[in-house]
């Protein structure tokens, strides 16, 4: 079974977010980048399936050279090889087209990625890739098992419940908790990752369909009003009469 896992390179969850160039660009200064946490669920599940059934796990990232440390980290966690599409990820549609172009050449059985990226929070790429390849996308899945060599069984979250879906290979799925328990690379993984193949390919001529023109930050809160624990009931009155939310 050939599995493709899409990873995005995002600011660590604890990062302070700032903008540069007159609020036109994200300021990378002092920001530590990590594999998107949702993608880690996808990556680990892919590796588990490979360990159980054989096959290979390829990771793909659409990004410039500065994403390579995290691609190597994915290799250290257990992916076999990697592809970097050498381009700035302009928008979800652009990224989806790059992934679809690579997937068309390689006939993957399963294409997995996180439910969303924690930087642009788009939740679009998985469905777009499925649509571009005319294969199903099961989104957002929290359980993925193979029924037999050609069929997978997934559980996905719907608002207020869950659905069980069976789907024939090939398909796209997005991952969320508790699909797997993300792994930390071990020493041996880190050593072997250095020599695993990381292929750099140039992007297709695809265009973006949206343009990020400006960034801003939420207004600061006015400060917290403290209520004495002895008179805790007073809070309910304030929520009704002052905040008007009850």
């Amino acid at each position: 079974m050939k599995i493709l896992v899409c990873i995005s390179n995002v600011p660590d969850t604890t990062s302070k977010i700032n903008f540069a160039a007159d609020n036109k660009e994200f300021d990378k200064n002092g920001v530590q980048f990590v594999i998107n946490p949702w993608d880690e669920y996808a990556l680990t599940r892919a590796i588990e399936l490979k360990e159980a059934k054989g096959g290979s796990v390829t990771v793909i990232n659409v990004g410039e050279a500065d994403t390579e440390p995290n691609i190597r980290k994915a290799l250290a966690i257990g992916a076999d090889d990697a592809i970097r599409v050498n381009a700035h990820p302009k928008d979800a549609f652009f990224v989806a087209q790059q992934i679809a172009a690579v997937a068309k050449e390689n006939n993957y059985d399963i294409i997995l990625m996180g439910k969303e990226s924690i930087d642009y929070n788009g939740s679009q790429v998985h469905n777009m890739v499925g649509e571009l390849l005319s294969i199903p996308s099961v989104v957002p899945a929290f359980k993925l098992d193979m029924v037999d060599d050609t069929t997978a069984r997934l559980e996905r979250e719907i608002e207020g419940g869950k659905e069980v879906v069976e789907v024939k290979l090939p398909f796209v799925a997005s991952a969320q908790q508790p699909m797997s328990e993300p792994r930390i690379p071990n020493m041996r993984g880190i050593m072997t990752a250095r020599t695993k193949p990381l292929q750099v390919v140039e992007p297709t001529g695809a265009e973006a369909k949206s343009a990020y023109v400006n960034y801003s930050k939420p207004e600061k809160k006015g400060g917290v009003k403290m209520i004495d624990a002895e008179n805790a009931g007073e809070l309910i009155t304030l929520l009704r009469n002052e905040a008007k939310v009850l």
């Binding site: 600011p11 969850t13 977010i17 903008f19 924690i118 930087d119 642009y120 929070n121 973006a208 369909k209 949206s210 343009a211 990020y212 023109v213 400006n214 960034y215 801003s216 930050k217 939420p218």
Partner: peptide, 17 residues
């Protein structure tokens, strides 16, 4: 305008199609 960076910022996006 859309929420980005998990609630830490907003971005103005021009839709061009």
């Amino acid at each position: 305008t859309r929420g980005v960076f998990s609630g830490k910022a907003f971005a103005d996006v021009a839709l061009t199609s």
